[in-house]
Design a protein around this nucleic acid. Sequence first.
DNA 1: TTGTAGGCGTTATCAG
DNA 2: CTGATAACGCCTACAA
Lengths: 333, 333
Amino acid sequence: MNIYDVSEKAGVSIATVSRVLNGNPNVSEPTRQKVLNVMKEIGYTPNVFARGLGLNTMHTIGIMCADSSDPFLANAVYYLEQNLRKCGYDSFLCCTGYDLINKQKYLQLLLSKRVDAIILVGSSFLEAAKKDNSYITAAADTIPVMVINGYINHPNIYCTLCDDYQAVYDVVNRLIDQGRRDILYLYTSRSYSGLQKLSGYKNSISSNGLIIQEDLMISCPNDITQTKDILMEQQKKGLHFDAVVASEDQLAVAAVKFAKQQGLSVPDDIAIVGYNNSILSGCTDPELTSIDNHVETLCMTTISTLMRVLDGNDVPNKTTISNDIAERETTNF
Amino acid sequence: MNIYDVSEKAGVSIATVSRVLNGNPNVSEPTRQKVLNVMKEIGYTPNVFARGLGLNTMHTIGIMCADSSDPFLANAVYYLEQNLRKCGYDSFLCCTGYDLINKQKYLQLLLSKRVDAIILVGSSFLEAAKKDNSYITAAADTIPVMVINGYINHPNIYCTLCDDYQAVYDVVNRLIDQGRRDILYLYTSRSYSGLQKLSGYKNSISSNGLIIQEDLMISCPNDITQTKDILMEQQKKGLHFDAVVASEDQLAVAAVKFAKQQGLSVPDDIAIVGYNNSILSGCTDPELTSIDNHVETLCMTTISTLMRVLDGNDVPNKTTISNDIAERETTNF
DNA sequence: TTGTAGGCGTTATCAG
DNA sequence: CTGATAACGCCTACAA
């Protein structure tokens, strides 16, 4: 069932059918109706492959994320898909994991599928070493690359991010203002936003006249139980802290569990701040104060930026939105 | 950069290039190498649209789910995408929401993209009224339709599900054995698996000689705060219960919050059982006992079944796997 | 306003 | 083992 069948049954040429299909105004109303009727009648659907072949696009965007089951990324993927669909685009989902080799491989794969653009969700895609990002900049020579929560300055790469530095800086300031002195910082990665958060922590500490202590900055796996065990271990080794700031809600949940196991009162003995304001933050007891980076806004901004790029507009390659704090019960805020 | 460029530079015909591309054995080794070298040299990538046009497939599967940010569905989407990619398929993600009209619209849309199969994730896709599922059976006349956690008997529809009936039946039995008498059942939907769970509850109650009380079966939104409020309200109205079984972890989290607010001791005053064994179940305090329906197994089974179907094998259209209980702190199990 | 014809980049069927 | 050539279904100048 193709354009020829329609043209035959409607008694017109395929060009006319194609015109009707594409809303070309140069078709008389009676003809248009005739064609439309035939299409409805035989249930005609244009073949996207043929269309893609001619136009060299299938209106498809590749969404890459490390792990779409992570609460934060899952949210992002959801909002992205929704907004893309509203704009008439389909989404190829691609979960890469955290391994560089796979990220490279999958980006290549998406490219070979001729997607119209690629969205990298989560800062885990930007490595500290510049050369490890070259596969991304190379891709940008072909199609627009959108980055969520990461920043890299390169033509045709557009980044939308939260001011993670400021958010952590502010929250640590507030903790210090309230008399906390030994603030533990838990993080999972040294990605772009990971480093931003970390330097927000460090700068706040030092600008308040405190000393940055290496053993108060702990790298953890993104796992509740394992992180709790790490905290127990550090505690046993004599590490003391009266507040925890985490780069992910999962780590903060671990801190809540830790506090409970140690019989510490939250927030009095120990204040805890999570990150992402994910669904997890409403599950713990006490409920988690968490930095909210507005995933939905982040995603909507990304898509509208992308649409402008695809329309050929000149678009700034960095958009920053501010975070705020969802204040719950693990702090005295 | 197309097959003609390669053929020219390699001094062979496009047919030969195509053969090399597709691993056709009827190519001499020297020729193969020559072609391969040229391809590498000029960085040739076959055009998937042209290929799709000829073969009428782009090796793409449509994944439909109501809301990919729901922890259970997010997990499922993740495992599906991973397994599909291993099999050489790409995934179109499509979040439909819970509205029937949209589900129909989006399924149609995926169909028009000529996906090779469609996976419906979550029982929310199967409506109680048969005619409301006709868009699904109609789709199955065109391509295989895989259903996760739902069952409908129709050619070319393949269902993979947990024995939700049995799981709830068993867990309610255990609660009764331990002396619980007023067991509250919270659910979000009357989808296929929703009804299975519900009848597991009812049958367990009545087969233990207890009376099924309508007001002990409460329909809730899939939201922690709202559900907690509903519980508070029911409590005020004088409803009494000493156990809660929920069709989703979110609802069980709400029950934990409720118990705390009421000063009830969990599990002594009130036992709570969740469903899906999602990441949430490890976040609450006390941690949630939850029925584990093995998302990963569910998804892997679905994909391997799908692959067998696409290979033209005869495959049973219903596969059931058993659940088990992740025992944590909200029960005395 | 409508129709004709060429091109998009493959794959597959025949001949040789 | 290799090459010519016809599909695949659509879009779009260019003609009429």
